[in-house]
Write a protein that binds this DNA or RNA. Structure first.
Lengths: 154, 154
DNA sequence: AGTGAAACAGGCGATCG
DNA sequence: CGATCGCCTGTTTCACT
């Protein structure tokens, strides 16, 4: 979708340092890259303006805040044109953390967290299956997230 | 897996502020929560020690760094006991960003980024299908990530 | 656990090459 | 674009509660 021609090797080095620790002092990045802190500051500002950096976040362990069930769900739609409306409805369900428009087995694909399997069942019955436009769903329960990481920079 | 009894409402307020902006000054969080900066500092330290906070990261837009294809893949194994070895092999493939042990259609489920559909095909043929233990795979290509977000805190 | 002060360090804008 | 400078703000520790 977008070019990456404006990203040079200094940008990549900065990105690879800050993607794994958002609280790292920019001066530390600067020392490692052998430039001034102000240069890092400007570069990161530029990367944000370009949309390369979308933001920053602390990573929470879902099970430690009570979410013990993780699942993926494939969704079949009655009509493909209902996609936008279904996305809006899914956005209203806070447990749905990721939503994709897909080809392959399903029309849509989502990732969802729930407090328990029982809770997941309730979300499925009470919320998902009441969304007009969804004809059926298939659930894949994750018994264990073996790893989760960021895309490496170059 | 874990209880969340040790997390009180101040912790939740802190978490909800820092999950959406990892660079927010702790003093700003402190003012909002009407406690001292040192208290926030201690709380966050404690949440890290408890494993509630797993780290922090800048969020990169994959397409802006040249990764234009996103896919999910269901994996069938020859034997369930090969799971651990397959995870190790998948970890060697940097484009694989998420790996789950699942029930349902598949034995395993992964999320993967590639530079293009052609690149995805190469990863699939040259790397994934050469992993001993994998009997077959099914690919779900994401044409669009409609949204991606964090689990809300309470 | 939380506070406030103090010492230290980093963020970030202005200005100059 | 990057460097230097400088002020302002935030971070972190510590003694006290």
């Amino acid at each position: 979708m977008e070019s990456n021609l404006q990203i040079d090797s200094l940008d990549k080095k900065i990105l690879s340092m800050i993607t794994h620790n958002a609280r790292i002092p920019f001066l530390e990045v600067a020392r490692e890259c052998k430039v001034s802190g102000a240069a890092i500051h400007q570069r990161i500002q530029r990367l944000m303006n370009m949309g390369v950096i979308k933001g920053s976040e602390f990573i929470i362990n879902p099970s430690k805040i009570g979410y013990h069930t993780c699942a993926f769900m494939g969704i079949f739609l009655k009509k493909a044109s209902l996609f936008d409306k279904v996305v809006k409805m899914l956005e209203e369900i806070p447990e749905v953390v990721e939503c994709h428009y897909t080809t392959g087995e399903y029309a849509m694909f989502i990732k969802i967290f729930a407090k328990s399997n029982e809770h997941l069942k309730r979300i499925l019955h009470d919320k998902l299956q009441n969304i007009p436009g969804i004809s059926s769903t298939e659930t894949i329960i994750s018994l264990d997230e073996s790893f989760k990481r960021q895309l490496p920079i170059e």
